[in-house]
């Protein structure tokens, strides 16, 4: 009798066991975790923090058209409409060759400079089994100044007008709303104004963003030069801005003491004093095709 009871209990419990086997639990069990589930994305909204590059790349086969614009200094007074009369503009086309490699070509009106760059995403920030705390991208660019020297009139060859930039971009998304980036930078100029100016400039960039809402973030960026030109009174580039994401594009509104938008220039050739009011209003608009 006891044994029958035991059998009954056993059967009942096994039935119970099955009825607890919820369909959603089965689906949970069958769900596979892919590698991509562990990659931390959207460290920054755009491919630029403000002036400088962020670790973000465009995805494969995406073409992005970026219009960047910096007005004159806002302390230039009413006569210049607070800098709006003056402007520097850069157009660029940037293309994702793969998810990890982006190349771009741009032209700045400042010194009629053409630039090309490549950015490669070396490591992604990851959670899970193969967790890695940082996203690391390598950046390299070459810029050619095509504006002729007005005085003294010297003929320079094409290669004499070239500058090179190499950067290691190291970023971490600490939380959904806070990310930061450190960017060791090396700049080489083939030609400098006077002999005392260094051909090689070393700098360290710091950038961060705080998300104010899902679609708006506040960004800050600072590049510290360890050595600098002596022919001009250069200052370290500092900028603050707002990223506004609108569907397929990201709009960036920027306040910075730099008027240029390419690395060799805004890191090593910025002369504005941010706290003295030499601030340029600017924006980056990107459209992805």
């Amino acid at each position: 009798m006891n044994k029958f009871l035991l059998t009954f209990v056993f059967l009942a419990s096994s039935m119970l066991c099955f009825s607890q086997d919820d369909l959603l639990d089965i689906l949970d069990k069958e769900t596979v975790t892919n590698d991509k589930d562990n990659i931390v994305t959207s460290t920054f909204k755009g491919t630029r923090i403000l002036n400088g590059h962020s670790v973000e790349n465009r995805k494969a086969k995406q073409l992005e058209f970026i219009i960047s614009h910096r007005f004159g200094r806002i302390n230039s007074g009413f006569d210049d409409l607070f800098g709006l009369d003056e402007s520097n503009i850069r157009f660029s086309l940037e293309y994702g060759f793969t998810d990890n490699l982006t190349g771009g070509f741009g032209r700045s009106s400042f010194e009629k400079t053409y630039d090309m760059f490549l950015k490669y995403s070396l490591f992604k920030q990851r959670t899970g089994d193969k967790s890695f705390p940082f996203a690391i991208s390598l950046f390299g660019s070459v810029a050619a100044k095509t504006l002729e020297e007005p005085f003294p009139l010297v003929q320079r060859s094409f290669s004499e007008n070239l500058s090179y930039v190499g950067q290691v971009l190291i970023a971490r998304k600490v939380s959904k709303s806070f990310s930061y980036q450190v960017s060791p930078t090396y700049i080489h100029r083939n030609t400098v104004t006077i002999a005392e100016d260094p051909h090689d400039i070393f700098a360290l960039g710091f950038g961060a963003r705080i998300k104010l809402s899902n679609r708006v973030s506040l960004n800050g960026e600072y590049y510290h030069q360890f050595n600098e030109s002596v022919s001009i009174n250069t200052r370290n580039a500092l900028g603050f801005g707002v990223d506004i994401e609108t569907g397929g594009h990201v709009f960036q509104l920027i306040l910075s003491n730099a008027i240029t938008m390419i690395e060799k220039s805004f890191i090593a050739e910025t002369t504005g004093d941010f706290f003295g009011g030499d601030i340029h209003l600017g924006f980056n608009i990107s459209r992805t095709f």
Partner: peptide
């Protein structure tokens, strides 16, 4: 009984940027 489950991160869009914004801001897949 019927049950369905999907990962939001598995949705693929024509534009990669849209996909990013879908996960990051609209559906908040994290």
């Amino acid at each position: 009984e019927m049950a369905i489950q999907m990962k939001m991160i598995d949705f693929t869009f024509e534009k990669a940027l849209m996909q990013e914004h879908f996960n990051e801001n609209y559906i908040e897949s994290d």
